[in-house]
Amino acid sequence: MVKYIFRRVLLLLLVVVSVMVIIFTILYFTPGDPAKSALGQDANPESIAAFHAKYGLDKPYPEQLARYLYKAIFKLDLGYSYMMKSPVSMELATRIPVTMKLAFWAVVLSTLIGIPLGVICSIRQYSFLDSLATLVTLLGVSMPTFWTGLLLILAFSVHLGWLPSMGASTVSEMILPIVTLSGSSIAVIARMTRSSMLEVIRSDYIRTARAKGQKERVVIMRHALPNAMIPILTIISMQFGALLSGSIVTEAIFSISGVGRLMLEAINLRDYPVIQGGVLFISVAFCLINMAVDILYAFIDPRIHVK
């Protein structure tokens, strides 16, 4: 087990470094000069040269890359924001909590609704409820997040006036962003739960459990659900990635100053270190969740131990 976790962590580090190289490279070869975005289009050549020298932008690509990696890995220094004139890690640190808070509650909400919904549909396959849920979840996976957000604002802020349409500091402010974020995740998780459960419910060992005289509720909860859990967990961890990147959209709609909004601003202003930092944060968080879920598999399923 320890060896397995160790190997996973090593793999994670490798992936993170590769992600850093890829993002750095994409941005390096992006046309457009950050100096001009920072200093204005008609800045004089001397000040542009000084800007380049200050941030090491005059060095060749391999040197810049090596320096970035070295600083990021060994000193946890993600560079300096051209716009904010402050360390990227500081900027991220102030923005991460709100983004994580939203993503966390969105995952919790979509899991707590998605899994029971999927389970109920699977044990009442072809019932009215199942058909209705299938239709609603189909719409759910097909609705763009930003439109969900706009509709919610239209309904609950503009028409009903119940909930604020901006910010995420109070509970009432957080409701709409969290619902917006969870909308499609609920649908995705419910669909996966339903199909995974349907497959498991037909299996022989469920029949064995019933032949023992076990109560149907116990058969579903203790025998079927754990066996259906692995694909569900996988989809939840995938959703976590989608929720973190979805924060770019949600934070834009609800004017929340989290990592997503920071990145969007940085993209518009060509503030490369900030973009790199944001992508890195989201990817690392995503990889960590995936890793945690992989390790969780081994606890759920004894067969994975042996592999």
Binding site: S203, D204, Y205, T208, A209, N227, I300, D301, P302, R303
Partner: peptide, 9 residues
């Protein structure tokens, strides 16, 4: 089928 009749977990 004993291969599938026991709960694997």
């Amino acid at each position: 089928d004993p291969m599938t009749s026991l709960n694997p977990l």
